Amino acid sequence: MRRRELSRRSGFCLGFSHSQTAGILPEWSPSAGHAGWSAQKTEGWKMENRSNNRPIPGISLSSVPSGTGCLECLSGAEPGWWVHLRRCAQCGHIGCCDSSPSQHASAHARTLGHPVITSYEPEEDWFYETNTKKFFRGPRLPDPQSRPLEQPVPAPAEKVPTDWRERIHR
């Protein structure tokens, strides 16, 4: 996918693996310290140099995921199912993506002012800054990195309607 196309679309339901984003998303440089962004240019993107060891706003390296599914959907919020999961990089809240009926991840970001979301799907490796609407590669957050592999998509299976494809946001 091209950089321009990435920047135009919402980041909450796009699924990108490390190999798919190589050369598109700016790289995290752990050698530069706690908040080590390299000031490299990657296909026209230039990230702010964060090699001064200051924390990255919106990312906590100590927050653990709130669970294996969307917190609100599992707590009884209707309709109670999701397509993909997103993780708040600041507090670890797990919410459903923008294609899901309830869009709890973006509601959490807006309500609490937590600007950075990352994927909570297996093999996806991206962060999204809701204020700037830009994708980037970020640091490794505390495990687990994704929902369990055996968990179906969409989920939870007993809540997903047979016509779920017609109910998602596109």
Rank of each mutant, 00 (worst) to 15 (best):
Q90L: 11
L71G: 03
R170S: 14
R4W: 09
H18T: 12
H34S: 11
C97H: 09
K134N: 07
Y128C: 02
P148Y: 13
S106V: 11
P65Y: 07
A105L: 03
R110Q: 09
S102E: 14
S17V: 01
R4L: 04
R2S: 15
N53W: 03
E158P: 02
L14A: 15
E78D: 09
F127S: 03
G15T: 08
Y128E: 01
S102V: 03
E158L: 00
A109C: 11
N49I: 02
R167S: 03
G95L: 08
I56Q: 02
R87G: 13
L112C: 14
R167Y: 02
P144C: 14
R167G: 06
W126G: 00
F135Q: 01
A32Q: 09
G15R: 10
K159M: 11
C91D: 14
K134M: 02
G138R: 00
P148E: 10
R165G: 00
S62P: 00
L85Q: 06
E78G: 09
E43Y: 04
R3H: 10
Q151P: 00
T21W: 04
P152R: 12
C13R: 12
T162W: 06
D143H: 10
E123L: 11
H18E: 15
A157L: 09
P156Y: 03
S99G: 12
E72R: 13
S66V: 02
I56T: 01
R2N: 13
M1R: 10
S10Q: 08
A32D: 10
L61N: 05
P156E: 11
G92L: 11
R137C: 02
I24G: 04
P30Q: 08
H18R: 14
S31Q: 13
I168E: 07
V116M: 04
C73P: 04
R87Y: 11
P30C: 09
N49P: 05
P26F: 00
A77I: 07
P65K: 08
H108E: 01
G69F: 02
P142G: 06
V153R: 13
G15S: 12
S75Y: 01
A155D: 07
H93K: 12
Y128L: 00
Q145H: 13
E150L: 12
L149C: 07
A35M: 05
E78Q: 10
R167C: 10
H104Q: 12
N49E: 05
I168T: 10
V83W: 02
N53T: 03
K133R: 11
A157Y: 03
H104S: 09
S19Q: 14
D163F: 00
T132H: 01
Q20I: 00
T68Q: 14
P154G: 09
E121S: 03
S19E: 15
E166L: 13
A77C: 05
Y120G: 04
S66F: 06
R8Y: 06
R4C: 03
T118V: 05
S146H: 14
E150F: 15
S62C: 10
